[in-house]
Amino acid sequence: MLGVSYSDFEEQSLNSYYQSETISNNRYVLYYYDSSDEASKEIQKEILKFFKDFELLDFYLLDTSTLELEVSNFGLYSEPVIYIISSNRVYEEYKGITAISEFIVEYSNIEFDYDLFEAQHISSYEEILAIENESYILYYYLDSCPHCIASKPYMLPWAFTKSAEDIYFMEGSTVPNADQKPTELIILNSGTPILVLMSNGKFANEFYSGKKDVLNYIDEVGDGDIIAKELLLDYDEFDEFSIDYFDTLTISDNLHFEYFYSPYCSHCEAIKQELLLFLDGLVNIDFYLIDTSTADGVSKISSFRGTPSLFIVNDNEVVAEYVGSLDIPNFIENYINGEIDLSIYE
Score class of each variant (00 low, 15 high):
Leu2Phe: 09
Val4His: 01
Glu10Pro: 00
Asn15Pro: 00
Ser16Thr: 11
Ser16Trp: 08
Ser16Ile: 08
Arg27Thr: 11
Tyr32Leu: 14
Ser40Asp: 05
Lys41Thr: 00
Ile43Met: 09
Gln44Phe: 07
Gln44Ser: 14
Lys45Phe: 10
Glu46Gly: 01
Leu48Met: 08
Phe50Ala: 05
Phe50Pro: 04
Phe51Gln: 01
Phe54Tyr: 15
Asp58Met: 07
Leu61Ser: 00
Thr66Asn: 11
Ser72Gln: 11
Pro80Arg: 06
Ile82Ser: 06
Tyr83Thr: 01
Ser87Leu: 08
Arg89Asp: 12
Glu102Arg: 13
Val105Thr: 15
Val105Lys: 15
Glu106Thr: 13
Tyr107His: 13
Asp115Trp: 04
Phe117Tyr: 07
Gln120Met: 09
His121Asp: 05
Ile122Trp: 03
Ala130Ser: 15
Leu138Val: 10
Ser144Thr: 15
Ile149Thr: 08
Ser151Cys: 07
Pro153Ala: 03
Leu156Ile: 11
Leu156Phe: 06
Leu156Thr: 08
Ala164Ser: 11
Glu165Pro: 00
Tyr168Pro: 01
Phe169Trp: 08
Pro176Ile: 12
Glu184His: 04
Ile186Pro: 00
Asn189Val: 00
Ser190Lys: 14
Ser190Asp: 15
Thr192Pro: 01
Ser199Phe: 01
Asn200Arg: 12
Phe207Met: 11
Gly210Gln: 09
Gly210Pro: 10
Lys211Thr: 13
Lys211His: 13
Lys212Tyr: 05
Ile218Cys: 09
Asp219Thr: 15
Asp219Pro: 00
Val221Met: 09
Val221Phe: 08
Gly222Tyr: 08
Asp223His: 12
Gly224Ala: 14
Ile226His: 12
Ile227Glu: 03
Leu233Trp: 03
Tyr235His: 08
Tyr235Ile: 07
Glu237Gly: 06
Phe238Ala: 01
Asp253Gly: 13
His256Met: 04
Glu258Met: 10
Phe260Val: 04
Ser262Asp: 02
Ala270Asp: 12
Ile271Glu: 01
Lys272Cys: 03
Glu274Asn: 12
Leu276Gly: 03
Leu277Val: 07
Leu282Cys: 05
Asn284Pro: 00
Asp286Ile: 07
Leu289His: 09
Ile290Gly: 02
Thr294His: 07
Ala295Leu: 04
Ala295Ser: 13
Asp296Tyr: 12
Val298Gln: 14
Lys300Ile: 03
Lys300Arg: 10
Arg305Pro: 00
Pro308Leu: 07
Ser309Thr: 10
Asn314Glu: 08
Asp315Tyr: 02
Asn316Thr: 11
Ala320Phe: 02
Tyr322Lys: 06
Val323Ile: 15
Gly324Ile: 05
Ile328Gln: 01
Tyr335Thr: 10
Asp341Ser: 09
Leu342Asp: 09
